[in-house]
Design a protein around this nucleic acid. Structure first.
Lengths: 210, 210
DNA sequence: GTCTATAAAGTGATAGAC
DNA sequence: GTCTATCACTTTATAGAC
């Protein structure tokens, strides 16, 4: 399904083209002419269907952010799964999703950097981290295993190791001689490895790694 | 030292203001008027001193990228230090530098995403990763300890856990109730923890973590 | 609904006074 | 060197023909 497919509506064509260009260049660097060109349609149709560039952007961004945040809150708030299971599911979910949409981290960081509060309200993640079930589980685990580590470190480590490689992929591809296919394989490896590394951090007592 | 300090030259004031605004908003979203306002000076002076917005940007970006890349290549290519020492130095170097310049990761990712090759040639890191001494050390270590892990994973993990939190800081501050000071302390903790986590990944044989 | 032509506003750059 | 005023061009948005 591309923006020039004859079987989809004009409105949808514009939205698909906008999604492509906004993700590639960010809001400010994107011209409505770029979107018109990408969609193979006329410039005036953008305003006919979406009233303004900003309105079109808000619609596109909302969809991307919902994709990025979908299931994650529920996953972390599930009282039926263990911490290890949550982390494994989270890592799989993000890597699978980012393999198909590798520009999302760049896009998200860009928007979050420009206006963090607006961004978070848009993706419906207003709830504080502290209220999630996984945090309660973590506090229990820390007590039980006599760990001194903060849950925030583990959350940061999980998200960092999972998401950052996609954001850094353009540099990585230029700096090492890694191809797009090799990068995909690398991330498939990480899908297995990251939960193991996190488990290591979780099961080793601090004095054992000093 | 700010852009409105009366003791520095007009040229330097413009460069400082440009640095601030370009880092905050990226190239495309920055207007020369924003830089003039930030510096407390007149719009025309930007072109008087720097000829064009693009030229000013190139100068500012070069300085930021050199700051970002300074010593890193030498550090990773040093044949006198162990892998663990290299990682510890690298993590300390980046966290110290990013504590003072927290917008750099956003800026770097933004530019690298827009034009990776141009970016890499600008910061003088054209050499391939494979040629660095640390990679040779790693291959030796993998053989010796019977690890099956790729060095690239460890490099990615180190950079991810170190740099990504700064890129994600705006979201983190909005989502958890963490303050700017608490974030600084968190990163000081990570300066100690990250090398330990990496050492764990390095010293545990794969079968032991399965 | 879709197009061409154009208005309206924004933005980088410069001329010329001081 | 520094400022005001303005040009030249780009870009968003709209009017109006089909």
């Amino acid at each position: 399904m591309t923006a020039t497919d004859p079987n989809i509506s004009t409105e949808e064509k514009i939205k698909l083209a906008a999604r492509t260009v906004f993700m590639r260049k960010g809001y400010a660097a994107t011209r409505t002419r770029d979107i018109a060109e990408e969609s193979g349609l006329n410039l005036a149709l953008i305003n006919y269907y979406f009233r303004s560039k900003e309105n079109l952007f808000n619609i596109v961004m909302l969809e991307i952010c919902q994709l990025f945040a979908s299931n994650v809150k529920e996953l972390l708030n599930n009282s039926e799964t263990s911490i290890e299971q949550k982390i494994e599911k989270l890592v799989h979910h993000y890597i699978d999703m980012l393999q198909s949409n590798p520009s999302i981290p760049f896009f998200i960081l860009n928007e979050a950097h420009t206006d963090p509060d607006l961004f978070l309200s848009r993706i419906g993640m207003n709830g504080k981290m502290e209220e999630l079930y996984i945090v309660k589980q973590w506090i229990e685990l820390v007590k039980e295993k006599e760990l001194t580590i903060q849950p925030l470190h583990i959350i940061l480590n999980t998200i960092s190791m999972t998401v950052f490689p996609f954001a850094a992929a353009p540099m990585l591809k230029a700096k090492s001689n890694i191809s797009t296919d090799a990068f995909k394989l690398l991330m498939e490896e990480r899908k297995i490895m990251i939960p193991k590394w996190i488990t290591m951090m979780l099961t080793n007592r601090e004095r054992e790694i000093q």
